[in-house]
Structures are given as C-alpha cells and as structure tokens.
Design a protein around this nucleic acid. Sequence first.
DNA 1: CTGAAAGCGCTTACAG
DNA 2: CTGAAAGCGCTTACAG
Lengths: 328, 328
Amino acid sequence: MTIDDIARELNISKTTVSRAISGKGRIGTKTREKVLKYINENNYRPNALAKGLAQSRTFNIGFVMPEDYNLTELSFFQNCMWGISSKASELDYDVIISMVTENNISRLERLVDNQKVDGIILGRTLENDPAVEYLKNAGIPFVAIGAAEDKSVPQIDNDHLAGSSELTSLLLKEGIRKLALIGGSMRHIVNQNRLKGYEDAFKKNKIAIDDSVIYTDTCSKIRIEEAVRDLLLKKAECILCMDDAICIHVLNTLENEAVRVPRDIKVASFYNSRMLENHQPAITSLQFDAMELGAASCRLLADCIEKREAANQTLLGYQLVINESTKF
Amino acid sequence: MTIDDIARELNISKTTVSRAISGKGRIGTKTREKVLKYINENNYRPNALAKGLAQSRTFNIGFVMPEDYNLTELSFFQNCMWGISSKASELDYDVIISMVTENNISRLERLVDNQKVDGIILGRTLENDPAVEYLKNAGIPFVAIGAAEDKSVPQIDNDHLAGSSELTSLLLKEGIRKLALIGGSMRHIVNQNRLKGYEDAFKKNKIAIDDSVIYTDTCSKIRIEEAVRDLLLKKAECILCMDDAICIHVLNTLENEAVRVPRDIKVASFYNSRMLENHQPAITSLQFDAMELGAASCRLLADCIEKREAANQTLLGYQLVINESTKF
DNA sequence: CTGAAAGCGCTTACAG
DNA sequence: CTGAAAGCGCTTACAG
C-alpha cells in the first residue's frame, strides 16, 4: 500500500495524505483524522526510502566502533550502542554499525560515500584520528565520544580527567607515595586524560611524581607482567591501572607471584566494566554510565543533523567506588 | 554529482551511464570505459537511496540482538556482529542493529515495517520465538543463528548438541559418574540442545542419568550458588556449566567455599568466551568461532534475499579444548 | 484548506 | 549498442 492507494481510496490527493501523515502544512482536522484512521486500520507504513529520497535524508546514523577492541572495551561499546540504539529509535533513526581499525577506515568511508547515513557517531577518538579528518572533509554531521583534539568537533565524554585526578588524590591523601600507573596506548586520547588526571593530583597535593613507576603504552599481556614484576622490586605501594584489561592482567600476575591484594599491594582501576564485578577482592575504581553516554551522543548528533543549537563539548559525570582492593 | 551530471558532461544518456555502472545491459566497451574513467576521476558515488527506491531494495540487513544479554553472551554477539559486518560489506550491504528483549520486539517490527532492511539475521532463537513468528508473517527474508523449532526457517548454528555430547562422553569415559549439569534458561533452544547432548552421552555410554544433579533454568547468581552448595553436599565429581556466565559464578562459589579445582572437584563449560581466557586453572570447554558463524549467516541471508539456492540448515563445527580444570 | 505537478536520483522495459 | 520515458513512493513549492 502506498500513499497513492490511500489517496484514491479516500478520494483526496496524495499531497493531502502526505500532509496528514507528516503533520506539516495546513490541513483540515476532519481530513487529517480521516486519513489517520484509514492508515491505522490498514496498517500503512510509509516507505522510508522514498521519504528519504524526497527529503535527502536516510534516517540512519552510523556508529563507528573499533574492530580491535579488547574485552573490557567491549562492554563499554556495547552499552554505548545500547544507549544510542534506544535514543535513536526514540528519535526515529536507525543505527548502522561500521567497524574500523586504527589504520583502516574504509568501511566508514563506504558508508558515508554511499550516502547511507545522515550522521556519524565516533565511538572512540585517536590522536590524529583519520576518521575525524575524513569526516570533516566529507562535510557530514558527526560527533565524537571521547575527547577530540580538534575542539570544533562536537564531542561528549565522561570526565576522565577529573575522575582520575580524584581517585589519585584520594590515594595520595591516604599516605600512599609509591603510587604506580600502568597505562594503555597513548594514541587514545582518553588515556592521555587519565595520565593528566594522575599528574594533576600530584601537583595539587604538591607531591613529586616518580616517573620510574609510570608505565605507558603497556598494551600486551607480557609487557604488563614485566611492569608488575618491576613494580614489586621497586616496592610500589599501589598500582593504578588505566583500564580493566590492564587491571585483570595485573591481578593475575600478582596472584601468580603470590602477592596479596590489598595486604601486600593495593590496586585500583580508572575504568570499571562488568568484568571486575565478580572479582575478589572487589576493585576500587571509577565508574561510568556508558549507556547514558551513548544516549547523550545520539541526542547531540540528532541536534547537529537537524541543525539545532547544541553544546559543542559536554562532560558527563562519574562515580568513585571505593572497594576492598585499596583498604589498609 | 548525479548520474544526470555525468550524462550531460559525457554527452550520453543517463541510461547508458547507469548501465556502465551496474554492468547490466549491453553497452559498448569504449563507452563503458569512458564513463568508468570519469566516475573514478570525479569520485562519483551513486545515491544508495535512489538506487534502492528504483530496485525496491535497501542494501541493509538487520541484525537482531537481545538487550538482556549477559557478559559472556556479549562477546559472542560482538564477534557474530563482526563476522556479519565483514561479510556484509563484502556483499555490499550495511548492517542495522536492532535490540530486542524476550518480550518486546517492537524495535524489530519498526525496522521491518518501515522497510529499512532487505532481510534480518536473528542473533538468538527462543522457544515460541515472537520474532520468528512476526518475521514469517511479514514475509521478509530472514535467517536464524541458532536452532529454530520451525525447520522451514533457514538456520545456522554450531553443533552444540554434538559438542556437549562429546565433552560429556569424554568425562564419563574418564570414569566420572557424579557428573552434574548447571544450565541456563530452557527457553533458549541452544540450552535445550546442550541438555540433550549431555543426555545423549549418558545413553551412548549406557550409564544411568542422575536427575538429582541436573539443574536447569538456574539463571541468577544466588540460584547458582545454591546449586553448587547442593552439589558439594551430594559429592559431585564434576560440574558441567552450560555457559560461561554460569561457570564464573560456579568458580567464584567454589573459591569462597575453599574447594579447589581440579583437586576437589572438576569443572568444564559448554561454551568458551574470552572471559575465561585468563582464569587459573584454565577451564576445559567447547570452543566456537562466532565470527565465522556470523559471516556464514550473512552469506546465507544474502542468498535468501537474492533468491539463490541455499541449505536450509547448516551446522558448523566446534573444538574441544581440554584444560587443567578437568585433570586428574 | 486542498491539489496538480515537479522533483529527489536512480533503474529498466521498450523501441530503435 | 544507445536513448526517451516511465516508474520507484514519497515531499514540497506553487497556485487556487
């Protein structure tokens, strides 16, 4: 059934039917109701393609997620996607997923070039992000989850900097001095912010940073194990893990070395996924609502697409969850 | 730039341009090459919407995933999605995600009713699945990952039945008799198959099943803990977990009760996600390639959409991975 | 308040 | 081998 069939059946023009459906343009109340009633009874659904072609819109948004995630990021992206998906259907969009790697954004390019989406949500941002570069040139509305270097890019994120700083501060105030940090790839802007938060806390508390207990770009399991053994020799009092993937390897290494948490060494994480939910002892960590973040990013993108005013930069909150793993 | 611009620029008709691009219909080699060259140089990309409208196709497929997954299923669905996404872009489709719950498939209905997809991949199947019911009525091509009751539905799955049976048999042959099973929701057909595989193994080995050590529909953490304590009293020799979410709770409970694996009791899982990768001791389990499964389901759906012959029922393999947790 | 007509950017029978 | 024209199912200035 098309708009044409309805028009014929109701003896009116398709213009009128279209107006009744869209609510745009003047139309008599009775006429509108007649159309709406007919549509309802006959279960008519407009063809999204035709509507899109006429309006130069697809009612799709693209969600770009990395293919090379690790397991903890996974639950982050999944929750994000969930939030995006809910908000999108509320706003009458659908979500097309596009998986990219750090060095290959051809899937994203194809999606945009083929004009299959009205806008893009970038699930993560990198330093010199090729996706950001590409999207700016393509001139398609997009928003970034996570901080983008380019401040003209509409972006939204949890306040990782403040969170990391607060958690670090807390531990410093407990009197911990050999407070080690093991971190992932510095190409990820979020990790840069976490490092910055850590450094800020030392400055704020006027305590000198000991660079020898900071390990960045420690991405592989082996490098993490090495770092942990190093830190044990250096008699670190606490290990801060930049994310949960790192935290899990740290915990496993400590267990293998028969070092007890929190008795022998304390451990905390700058990110808490559901992965550590069941760990014993429970791990002190920051906590973020990825669903909320996803939903907010979707709302922001819709604002961009539909040319409404919107804050260019939004920081969402976090929660500091103190657990067994940092108890004295 | 549209097909019209190209036609004008090259002094040919848009029919010809269209033919050069699609490769359909007779066209002179020189003309085709001229068009292709122009397109390449000017970076023309056809408008997917217009193409779709003309052909009554969207070049989108929908991937339906449950919103109420648990963490281990998560990595399954994610890998599936990855496989689907790769294969889809190879076949020139894009993937729209649609999240549903067991009782609410409105998102899926909206997607289909709005005609935004050419076909659907169901990420999981249930008993009396409302999604299957709906899709059959809607008359849209779809395939199910996992076994559907209705054998007319094109479906594809790993051979969970054979896998569970083989793993169970192996343990029986080791001489284990009090071989307990803790399982999730029996509304999930995959769990029915796992149970069946377990039972088959007993029959094949002519050993009587002890129903008192079989716990099905044990979904909550609390119920799992109860089951484990029960089983310890009953002096079970080994606990088979239907999936990894269960396995993790079983392992945690055992640890709390200071029961050692595999010394005091053995543990194995019918599904291995990346979650247990780092567990010590390593857990004996079946292993499936979810990416491969996703890719295969996508290929199958494309066959259905494009009306090619295709096997209605495909079973993919599995791997039995023997680990520390079942050692004597 | 309502409608005829052009347009969105493609495809495809039909004719030549 | 190539093209004019109709069509896919909507929207939207324009006219009345």
